[in-house]
C-alpha cells in the first residue's frame, strides 16, 4: 500500500514537472497597414500568452482597446467603427507548436517553429498557420512571429471613402518573453 502511494505521488510530481507552463502578460502585438495614401500602425504591449511545455499548446489574448495609435482619432475609429471593441473586447489565438517535441527546453538555443491554430478577431474565428522562432534563453522562452491577415476574413468592413487608406491585408507581428509559471 505504502509503495502504491509513493508511486502515485511520484507519478503525480513527475506529471506536474512535465506540465511546466510559461507565460507573459507583457507580450507585444503590432499591426501594420501600408498603402500609397498612408501607413497606419498600432501596438499593444500587454498581450497575454501561455505556453504549455508538456504539449506545445500556445494561447494568446490581447485587449483590442489596448492597441495604441499615434493618432487619437484613428484609435477611436478602430475601436468604434472597425473592431467594435465593446462587443468584441479581445482577440484570441489558440493553437499549438507543430515540431515542439524536438525542442529541448533545458538547453539554450534558437529554433524555427510552425504554429497553427484558431485566431479569433472581431468575433470571427479562422484557422491560421505561421512560422516563427522560439528561443530558449536561461530558462525563459522568447517567441516571435510575423504573419498576414486579410481584414475582410474577419467580417470587418472598410467604407469606400477610406478604402484607399487602409490596406486589405495587415502585417501582424507578435513577440513575447515567457517566464515559467509558478503554480
Amino acid at each position: 500500500m505504502t509503495r502504491l502511494v509513493i508511486i502515485t505521488l511520484f507519478v503525480l510530481i513527475q506529471h506536474t514537472g512535465n506540465a511546466q507552463k510559461y507565460f507573459t502578460k507583457s507580450g507585444t502585438i503590432s499591426f501594420f497597414s501600408k498603402t500609397d495614401m498612408e501607413n497606419i500602425d498600432a501596438t499593444s504591449k500587454s498581450a497575454v500568452c501561455v505556453l504549455d511545455a508538456a504539449t506545445g499548446k500556445m494561447e494568446w489574448s490581447v485587449l483590442i482597446k489596448g492597441f495604441q495609435f499615434e493618432k487619437a482619432l484613428m484609435q477611436e475609429h478602430f475601436n468604434e467603427n472597425y473592431m467594435e471593441s465593446d462587443k468584441f473586447p479581445k482577440a484570441i489565438f489558440k493553437g499549438s507548436i507543430q515540431n515542439f517535441a524536438k525542442i529541448n527546453l533545458g538547453t539554450n538555443g534558437k529554433h524555427k517553429v510552425i504554429v497553427d491554430g484558431d485566431l479569433t478577431i472581431h468575433g470571427v474565428t479562422k484557422k491560421i498557420s505561421t512560422s516563427g522562432t522560439l528561443e530558449i534563453k536561461d530558462g525563459k522562452v522568447v517567441t516571435a512571429s510575423e504573419f498576414d491577415i486579410t481584414i475582410a476574413d474577419y467580417g470587418i468592413s472598410i467604407p469606400n471613402l477610406v478604402k484607399d487608406n487602409i490596406a486589405k491585408t495587415l502585417k501582424i507581428s507578435v513577440s513575447g518573453m515567457l517566464e515559467p509559471l509558478k503554480s
Binding site: K21, K25, V48
Partner: peptide
C-alpha cells in the same frame, strides 16, 4: 487545464 491555458493567468485589472 490544457484546454484553456489563458484562464490560468490572472488578468491585471485595467
Amino acid at each position: 487545464q490544457e484546454e484553456d491555458l489563458l484562464s490560468m493567468i490572472e488578468e491585471d485589472p485595467v
